[in-house]
Deep mutational scan, measured.
Amino acid sequence: TTEYTFTDDEEARRAIEELKKRGLTFRYEKHGTTWRVRVD
Rank of each mutant, 00 (worst) to 15 (best):
E3Y: 14
G32D: 05
R38Q: 14
T5Q: 07
V37Q: 00
T2Y: 14
A12C: 12
D40S: 12
H31F: 12
A12S: 02
R14V: 08
A15E: 03
T1L: 10
W35H: 06
K30M: 06
T7H: 12
T7L: 08
E3N: 05
E11D: 09
T34I: 14
E3S: 06
D40E: 13
L19W: 09
R38T: 15
E18W: 15
T25D: 06
R38A: 09
R22P: 01
V37I: 15
E17V: 08
G32T: 02
E3C: 15
E3V: 14
L19E: 00
A12Q: 02
V39K: 00
T1D: 08
G32H: 03
R13W: 14
H31L: 13
F6M: 02
L19Q: 00
T34Q: 08
T1V: 14
V39H: 02
Y28M: 09
E17H: 09
V39S: 02
L24W: 07
I16M: 13
E3G: 03
D9L: 09
F6P: 00
Y28A: 14
R13K: 11
F26R: 01
T7P: 03
T34F: 12
E17M: 11
I16N: 03
Y4R: 03
L19I: 06
R13N: 07
T25S: 13
E17R: 13
V37Y: 00
T33F: 09
R14M: 10
A12V: 06
K20Y: 10
A15F: 15
Y28C: 14
W35I: 12
K30W: 04
T25P: 08
K30Y: 05
E18P: 00
F6E: 00
G32Q: 04
E10N: 12
F6K: 00
D8G: 05
R22M: 12
G23A: 03
L24F: 11
G23N: 05
Y28G: 02
I16H: 01
K21V: 07
K20S: 08
Y4T: 03
E3M: 12
T2C: 15
A12E: 00
R38D: 04
R13Q: 09
G23T: 02
Y4L: 09
K21Y: 06
E29H: 08
E10V: 10
G32F: 03
G32I: 02
G32L: 04
G32V: 02
A15N: 04
K20F: 11
T2G: 05
E11A: 12
I16G: 02
T5I: 15
T25C: 13
T33Q: 11
K21F: 07
T25L: 10
G23R: 04
K30N: 04
F26N: 01
G23I: 01
E17W: 11
E11Y: 05
E10R: 10
R36G: 02
T5L: 13
E11F: 05
R38I: 15
T7S: 08
K20C: 14
K20G: 05
A15D: 00
W35P: 00
E29L: 07
T25H: 13
V37M: 03
V37C: 03
K21N: 08
L19A: 04
R22Y: 06
E3L: 13
T5V: 14
K20W: 08
R13H: 10
T34L: 13
L24H: 06
F26A: 04
T1G: 10
E29M: 09
W35Y: 05
G23P: 00
R36I: 15
T5A: 05
R22K: 10
R27S: 15
H31V: 14
G23Q: 04
K30R: 10
R38V: 15
K20T: 12
T1A: 11
F26G: 01
E17I: 10
I16S: 01
L19T: 00
T7E: 11
E10G: 11
E18R: 07
R36S: 07
D40R: 10
Y4W: 13
A15G: 04
T2F: 13
E11I: 08
H31P: 01
T2S: 07
R27H: 14
H31E: 13
E29F: 13
K21I: 08
R38L: 15
F26H: 02
I16Y: 02
F6N: 01
R14F: 07
F6A: 00
R38G: 03
